[in-house]
C-alpha cells in the first residue's frame, strides 16, 4: 500500500494538509488533521493514518503513536448511533456506572464495542462539564441529561423506531 493510487482521503482534508505544509512547524498540525479525519470518517483507519504520514512527511510510527496515545481518537468504526456515557465525578456520584451497566445489558455489548448490526456502539467519555445535570449520556451529538435506568431501554427503542421511520 505504498503507491499513491491507493490514497483515499477526502480532497478537503488533503488540501488542509497542504496548507499545513506551508506553515512553520507543519508537523505540529498532526492532531488537527487526525481530528478532521475522525470528524469525516468516524474513526482513524490504518490506511488513512498511513496516508497522513506520507503527505505530512512524518514517520508512520509517529502518526500511530499519537493516534493510540489520545483517548479521543478511535481506531475502530463506531455504530450508527454512538452512545457515550459520561464518567465524570458528578455523573459517577449520581449513578452513571449503573446507567452504563444498563446500556451494556440492554445492548449486549461491552464498553468500546459495537452491536453486530452496526447500529449502536457504547463508550464512556471523560467529563462533559454538564455536571449540574448529571448523569449525562450523549447519543451522537445529542445530550441527554438526568438519565434514569428506565430511560435506557426507552432511548434505545425510540432510536430504533425513528431509524425504521427514516429508512422506510
Amino acid at each position: 500500500m505504498t503507491t499513491k493510487t491507493e490514497y483515499t482521503l477526502h480532497p478537503d482534508i488533503v488540501s488542509f494538509i497542504e496548507t499545513c505544509l506551508q506553515k512553520e512547524h507543519s508537523e505540529s498540525y498532526l492532531m488537527d488533521i487526525l481530528h478532521k479525519i475522525q470528524d469525516k470518517y468516524g474513526y482513524l483507519s490504518e490506511e488513512h493514518m498511513y496516508e497522513v504520514a506520507q503527505r505530512l512527511q512524518v514517520p508512520a510510527s509517529t502518526v500511530s503513536g499519537v493516534s493510540t496515545f489520545y483517548h479521543f481518537f478511535r481506531l475502530q468504526p463506531r455504530g450508527k448511533y454512538a452512545i457515550s456515557v459520561c464518567m465524570g465525578t458528578a455523573c459517577f456520584v449520581k449513578g452513571a456506572d449503573k446507567v452504563l451497566n444498563a446500556f451494556q445489558t440492554e445492548l449486549g455489548i461491552g464498553l468500546g464495542e459495537t452491536t453486530k448490526d452496526g447500529m449502536f456502539s457504547l463508550e464512556n467519555t471523560r467529563c462533559l462539564g454538564v455536571c449540574g445535570l448529571a448523569p449525562v449520556v450523549t447519543i451522537n451529538e445529542q445530550v441527554y441529561s438526568r438519565v434514569t435506568l428506565q430511560q435506557v431501554s426507552e432511548l434505545i427503542n425510540r432510536i430504533l423506531n425513528k431509524d425504521v421511520e427514516k429508512t422506510t
Binding site: E27, S28, M31, D32, G65, F72
Partner: peptide, 23 residues
Amino acid sequence: RLGAGAFVCGEETALMYSIEGKR
C-alpha cells in the same frame, strides 16, 4: 489547538508536546 482526551496534557510540559504534534 485541540486536545484529544488526555488528562496528562493538563501538565504543562505534556501540553507543549501535544501542541508540537507529539504524544
